[in-house]
Design a protein around this nucleic acid. Structure first.
Lengths: 336, 336
DNA sequence: ATTTGCGATTTAAACGATTAAGCCTATATT
DNA sequence: AATATAGGCTTAATCGTTTAAATCGCAAAT
């Protein structure tokens, strides 16, 4: 029950494998293949149910038509949605995607990169973890095409597609200020990565520009691995130290979930006791008793851009770097 | 800047590629390779930063160490979570996973299968769509290892890992009955697939066993592609026709989300106006004002089993079929 | 009549590995 | 001394493709 190869077709038709290859790759013109024999070959291929062996093809051509997608966690809705857009876009360019979750750990990320390199992926789309700078540099040195997504390293010039974290945060917090909040806390997660730093900076600057006291003591950072536990403790402490906090800005979807859960459990009413703005969307917001304002990231656009840039780099390694900042919109929800 | 191959190592050390291959694959014993030269080879490989070319390896061995995962939609939290467990489990068996979303469409599913076959995946894990029976049969005829997940076809004997849909539904609805609900409606989605049929059957039987009138008129089916629109219309109509409905049983996570949104929008209070039980979990439930009872599917176990079975089939194509029903538990939430 | 050119096809090397089989040499066995 | 055995290594075929180069008629041009 061997699969049928180009050789089988060649034998069945009585020609060389070269001819079959030319025809099946639509290179008849360039290779000057006869019209009638081309038809015969095509027919026979269909008849035998030929399916090209992409592995053999890859070995010969040096292109696997595969891209590696490395995210923090595919089960996180943000990344799952990104993955979906990337899947769809990749298909348009005839790429297939292999994914892996790094859990924000540099060693896992390195491990994934290695595995994917061994599989000869043509390029990567990576949401880089903290401490993965060297991995990224190494990809560059090896001239492996890649596009960073969601985060990037300012000190390394690479392709990337990220949201305008600073502005988005700034506007989000400004919105809270404008609606009369005077003591706004932020829950971020502990990370040296710019995306989080920028969100914090946007928050701080918005406070300053709104004539509020510095938010330094009001930004709390949570460890990625213990979000659900820590967020409660941290917010509890915050509220104890600053009973006059009247708003929270959550820096990611997971933080929002944890934070809102805490507020529910402790019977803080939104927006009467505290207002809330979340960075990133969640379908859970729809079920919340209060309308929630959030920063909406254009996932589809991010996926599209990432693939477009990556495809460009793959087909032309000398292509210019592209650094795309997409605009996230603040979706203001006040009434039902 | 070519990548280094086994040939480069062989040349650098001054031996044949065969020797290098034996050493790097830890076949020194069987191949009686000398101790010292083995060390030299290993060192040189490290020094040159050798990374095996899995593509070449695959071509020769006929094993790609890759599995194809086909789900309805990777952005759906249920499948995203499944994907994560499968990723982790697959890694333990040294497999890498390529995924694709079928959108419950048989043609897309077929297309994905073809693409993955061309890529020589060693096996599949598939959440089959309605109407994909022939595709599944065809895989069988080609002796391609696969495991169905979440759904299966009773008339085709295949490996599968599914939850005990009937029982889970039955218990869920029984629970509603026991807590005093007398008119329970179910929102399902339109599908000939057994998983949904079984959920409906469990619902109907639970009603009958609880001495309620037949639920026939109270099961409504929604098209997969228009869940969010239709669910509102359908539930609105239901409530109009049967103002005495006092509970809803939602057949999937997407249906639950849509349904709860509808109830919120129309100011039905839970559980005072109507009670609700959802099939499948959602992190959104945590933010809902009322505690929600739901059917919890053991995703980790499902992923583990699927990979275990698949790996078994790959290494021994004559392995016996395995049909696993995992137990979903009803998580009853009454108080905060 | 010879060359040129062109269309149609084949040849064969290559991609990077794996692996059965063969070839030495040196030591052990009889 | 002759033979067997084992250890250490190489040879070469192979996996299924792609593709540059070679080949081969045959008609047109000189």
């Amino acid at each position: 029950m061997k699969r049928v190869s180009i050789k089988d077709i060649a034998q069945a038709v009585g020609v060389s494998t070269a001819l079959v290859s030319y025809v099946l790759n639509n290179k008849e013109k360039e290779a000057r293949v006869g019209q009638k024999i081309a038809e015969v070959i095509r027919l026979k291929a269909k008849e035998l149910g030929y399916q090209p062996n992409q592995i053999a093809k890859s070995l010969k051509t040096g292109r696997s038509q595969t891209i590696g997608l490395i995210v923090a966690d595919i089960s996180n809705p943000f990344f799952a949605n990104i993955a979906r857009t990337i899947e769809d876009e990749a298909k348009k360019y005839n790429y297939t995607v292999i994914f892996g979750s790094s859990d924000e750990a540099a060693d896992k990320s390195q491990n994934l990169i290695n595995i994917l390199l061994e599989r000869q992926v043509d390029g990567f789309i990576i949401a880089p973890t903290e401490g993965s700078e060297e991995q990224i540099r190494s990809l560059q040195e090896q001239h492996i095409p890649f596009v960073l997504i969601d985060r990037y390293f300012p000190e390394i010039s690479t392709n990337f597609v990220v949201t305008n974290n600073y502005q988005a945060s700034y506007h989000a917090v400004k919105h809270l200020a404008r609606s009369g909040r005077r003591k706004i806390a932020m829950i971020a997660y502990k990370s040296g990565l710019v995306h989080m730093k920028e969100r914090e900076k946007g928050y701080l600057d918005a406070l300053a520009d709104s004539g509020m006291e510095s938010g330094q003591g009001l930004v709390k950072e949570i460890s990625y691995n213990f979000i659900q536990q820590e967020v409660g403790e941290v917010m509890g402490q915050l509220m104890k130290d600053h009973p006059d906090i009247d708003a929270f800005f959550f820096g990611s979807n997971a933080l929002s979930m944890g934070g809102l859960r805490f507020l529910n459990r402790n019977n803080y009413r939104i927006p009467d006791d505290v207002s809330v703005v979340c960075f990133d969307e969640s379908e859970a917001f729809d079920l919340f008793y209060a309308p929630l304002t959030f920063v909406n990231q254009p996932l589809l656009e991010m996926g599209k851009e990432a693939i477009r840039i990556l495809a460009g780099q793959i087909s032309d390694r000398a292509a210019a770097l592209e650094q795309v900042f997409v605009d996230s919109a603040l979706i203001v929800r006040t009434d039902k």
